[in-house]
């Protein structure tokens, strides 16, 4: 299977998948490129074919703090689907990124025009967000922390 079949796109029903894929154009993004900035206009999104991206947050006085990395098959960007269409995080190419790039405005217009397509796309993006939320919550647990540091537990 290609990355596009097993990732975000693969989860869409075939008809809607083909329709969405028709909006795609292939891009190559050099390693180190800043793909988008926190707060910037979310006018595009990508599905990664190969390479990796890092989602980060700008922190004054230090290198951008990486909160999560994405790779093959992953959806890069979902802020484009929800108002005010501004990026919540920044993104940078960790390595040369081959990706399918989508024009968010056109996809949104198609979603508005065809509610069945809109629902399928929204459902697919929501599933990605749900997985990332679950993963983020798991990290909030800080499972590998030394026992007792923040749980107050005793140790033997």
């Amino acid at each position: 299977m290609t990355p596009l079949q097993r990732g975000f796109l693969g989860a869409l029903p075939p008809g809607h998948r083909d329709r969405l894929a028709a909006f795609a154009r292939d891009v190559s993004i050099p390693a180190g490129t800043r793909i988008f900035e926190e707060g910037g206009s979310a006018d595009r999104f990508w599905i990664i074919r190969s390479g990796g991206a890092a989602l980060d947050v700008h922190v004054p006085g230090r290198r951008p703090a990486v909160v999560e990395t994405l790779g093959e098959g992953d959806l890069l960007g979902w802020s484009w689907l929800f108002e005010p269409y501004r990026w919540h995080l920044g993104a940078r190419a960790r390595s040369t990124l081959l990706a399918a790039e989508f024009d968010a405005g056109r996809v949104r217009a198609a979603c508005a025009q065809d509610p069945a397509f809109g629902l399928a796309v929204t459902h697919g993006v929501a599933a990605v967000i749900a997985r990332r939320l679950a993963a983020t919550r798991a990290r909030l647990l800080d499972l590998y922390a030394p026992p007792g540091t923040d749980t107050g537990g005793t140790a033997g």
Binding site: G7, A54, A65, T69, G71, E72, R94, A135, A138, R139
Partner: peptide, 17 residues
């Protein structure tokens, strides 16, 4: 990650992909 980490960031389950 710390400032020198260039690897993946996220829970181990995301590596299954």
């Amino acid at each position: 990650p710390d400032d020198r980490w260039n690897g993946e960031v996220g829970v181990v389950t995301t590596l299954l992909d």
